[in-house]
């Protein structure tokens, strides 16, 4: 029996973030938005404020816990959009080939030539700030890697005997893509999706840091970092705790991706007697 340490540690970090998001009202000790108390601003971590308080006297612990809701929603939903777009485009391009493949490959190359954060910025500028705009902007800009992997896998797998066998059986293209190709490329796609979730959380932080994401006073880890940047030397806990939250969540997702890849490969499972 293998230890699968990466799966458990990664899953643990991610589960911690999910728990924080789900149980935010229980875990928070103060109101994250309205609990401002200018008399007690920028207090260091202590008994009252576990993670210290920010410039407006709000509890950073409570804000980090509530911020998990935004960060995880953005990470999961926008990566889901990316995965669906990338997989659908990639698998059809790889399997059908021809002009459709040329079109998809061209589009992918164009997307890769545009820095995705800049593109997301442009979309945010059109849609205006907010959670929904964030989901759309990040969901439309990071599907290229999924697409490339799905396309390459489809091209490699479509000449496999079992795909030919399915054709000889009379299976349609849709059935072949869903039943023969997709399960056999799920491993790398899931790894990319978990890594992408981490990337989306970072991108949300960046956009919120630039003031285009979640608007104050609502907490997201990115916007908290943004607030902290003016006096990061004097009051380091302002930046440290949301930063650590991002770090451990993204690290957890990356480890989880590796772990999932291992167990999703049936050939690595122990043989039955």
């Amino acid at each position: 029996m293998k230890m699968r340490a990466n799966l458990w540690i990664g899953g643990g970090f991610f589960a911690l973030a999910v728990t924080a998001a789900l149980l935010a009202p229980v875990l928070a000790t103060h109101d994250p938005v309205l609990g401002a108390d200018l008399m007690r601003s920028e207090e260091p971590p202590g008994r009252e404020f576990w993670f210290g308080s920010d410039t407006q006297g709000r509890d950073i612990w409570s804000r980090v816990v509530y911020g998990a809701r935004i960060s995880l929603t953005v990470g999961v939903v926008s990566q889901l959009i990316n995965s669906v777009i990338g997989t659908v485009l990639g698998i059809t391009a790889g399997y059908w080939g021809g002009w459709w493949d040329d079109l998809v490959s061209g589009l992918t190359n164009i997307m890769l030539a545009i820095p995705s954060l800049i593109f997301a910025l442009a979309i945010m500028a059109i849609l205006g700030p907010g959670l929904f705009s964030l989901l759309i902007a990040l969901g439309l800009t990071n599907w290229t890697f999924t697409c490339r992997i799905a396309r390459a896998q489809a091209m490699a797998l479509k000449s496999q005997g079992y795909v030919q066998a399915a054709k000889v059986m009379g299976s349609g293209d849709l059935s072949i893509m869903l039943r023969e190709l997709l399960p056999n490329m799920a491993g790398p796609l899931i790894v990319i999706a978990t890594l992408g979730m981490g990337g989306s959380i970072l991108a949300e932080a960046a956009l919120s840091f630039l003031g285009l994401g979640i608007q104050p006073p609502f907490p997201s880890w990115g916007s908290m970092l943004s607030d902290a940047r003016d006096n990061i030397r004097a009051v380091p806990w302002l930046a440290a705790f949301p930063g650590l939250a991002i770090f451990f969540t993204v690290l957890g997702l990356n480890l989880l991706g590796d772990g999932l890849r291992d167990i999703l490969d049936p050939q690595s499972r122990s043989r039955l007697p």
Partner: peptide, 16 residues
Amino acid sequence: VQMVFQDPYASLNPRR
């Protein structure tokens, strides 16, 4: 008409 393939390792979907 049906076919028996050459390579029994590649002709069966490993995930099913």
